[in-house]
Amino acid sequence: MCDDCGCVSPGHHHVVDVNQSLLAANDALARKNREHIEELGAVAINLISSPGSGKTTLLEKTIERLAKEFRIGVIEGDIETERDADRIRAKGVPVVQLTTGGACHLDAALTHKGIHALEDQLGEKKLDLLFIENVGNLVCPATFYLGEHQRVVMISVPEGPDKPAKYPKAFISSQVFIISKTDLLPYFDFSPEAAIKDARQLNPRLMVMSLSATTGDGFDSWLAYLRSLCQ
């Protein structure tokens, strides 16, 4: 029987006002993920960038610098392969590789699986920092809340400074904006000021950092930010 008019006749025309977000199911699951992450003792960071911006390298160097101070875990998102997880595993921290099998982003359901798999590795151990490296893509991941505490968007110098203006959603929804591979600035026509101006116009609250994971230049402000999250 129908809830709005009580009819049982087939073919009756129903107009139902739903007013519900298509992302409601994802967001509800993401809130559970967040509770779950907090039970593990961790602050979670969702790292979003195009393929090849240096997300995995950033994590490798971060682990090298912080592994003695904090208990770090990583969830890797990719369409295929274990390659990124292998690189992180070599640094000696617990890591789970999620392969989406074609999907261009992580969602809360897949992240939920990742958290459970990480928990299996941890046993009774806790975490301080959980990095979720999203699928390399500056567009689609921005729509899906995974339960993270902070969202970090990154562009590398070779990509060009127009990315914030072209892909606004990732910058509007993030708390931190990193410009990576600054050691390549002499070789590219990249104006950090222009990229920062566009990003700040979209999101005035954005915290901005420029760094090179290879030379370590600018890395201290990134580490200081991570330390502030763990206090």
Partner: peptide
Amino acid sequence: KTLLVPDGGDGLILLQVEME
């Protein structure tokens, strides 16, 4: 002043469904 932020507009909302 120059500090402007989007006011809403990020929704993807199923408003209404008509069914037979």
